[in-house]
Amino acid sequence: MAPRAGFVSLKGFYMPVIVQGLLTIVIGVGGCIGYFYLSNLLLDKVIFPAKGENAGRNINRANQIRPWLFLFPAIFALGLYLVYPVVGSFWRSLYGRSPSDWVGFDNYVQLAASNEFQQAFFNNLLWVIVVPAMATFLGLLVAQLTDKLSWGNIAKSLIFMPMAISFVGASLIWKFVYANDADIGLINAIRASLGFGNPIDVMQIPFWNNFFLMVILIWIQTGFAMVILSAALRGIPEETIEAAILDGANPWQLFFRIKVPQIMGTIVVVWTTITILVLKVFDIVYTMTGGNFGTEILPSYMMDFMFRDDGRATAVAFIIMIVVLPVMIWNIVQARKEMR
């Protein structure tokens, strides 16, 4: 293909998509503003006008309805894209490959019996244990180490950077570490320089390859944990730390007995946030191994069935939902506690 051809086709074919995009922005934004403006206008001027003999009552009535005008688009979208799917997915998971083929809980039964599913479930368990623990631990470590450092903000910014990178991009980046070639992969280069002759493919080492994949997500999430924990550490009253120094605490005791207990709430929040993420991320496994070599996890396992067997795919998705459920409930309880 000639280098310029892409450019030409870009103009010939792509402008409409961009235009379409811009149009959507205009229609979407304009529609939103128009909706909010006109619906309020309608409410105040036509349905319950704030004049005439019932002005006072009308204002009150309008104010009772207005919140729902403000909320309607959000409730509609949330209901459609998040609430309905919980029910819809469950319902669909009771059918087989064809949406008209009622199978009851067969999908779940078959999943439970499948080796691959058990493998994916077990791997996911490993991920849920290892990734949040390591990311939180490293985040806390970096947050503490950089706390009083003159160049701490630069260091934090650099460790935070992977947050901006897509899981796909991150996977590619790590291919340059894991590649099965001493001239490309760092790990094999280090092995070669230590005198090991033949390169190994770390993605194919049974069991341990899971951990090499987790490293990628830990690499991304440590920055998140660090930013939040760093703010929490800063929030600890300086005087309690000075009091502990006067009380004779050494740096170790200061950290574990004074600082960590004071930010325990934040540590839990960070931990659960990363746990939830681990249950959603399929990109890394998909890009690095495609789920081969015993590295399948639930989200990537689900994608194996996507477009092929919707019944099975929704069953896997619903199992993920059930795993997340305790965290969801805990979150809601916490949120309600705060509001009081």
């Binding site: 005087e239 120094i245 006067l246």
Partner: peptide
């Protein structure tokens, strides 16, 4: 800690946990 002093802070500096 080895000076044999104790200090009362303006904000009390009690360990909240």
């Amino acid at each position: 800690a080895q000076r044999g002093i104790a200090m009362v802070f303006q904000s009390y500096a009690l360990y909240p946990h």
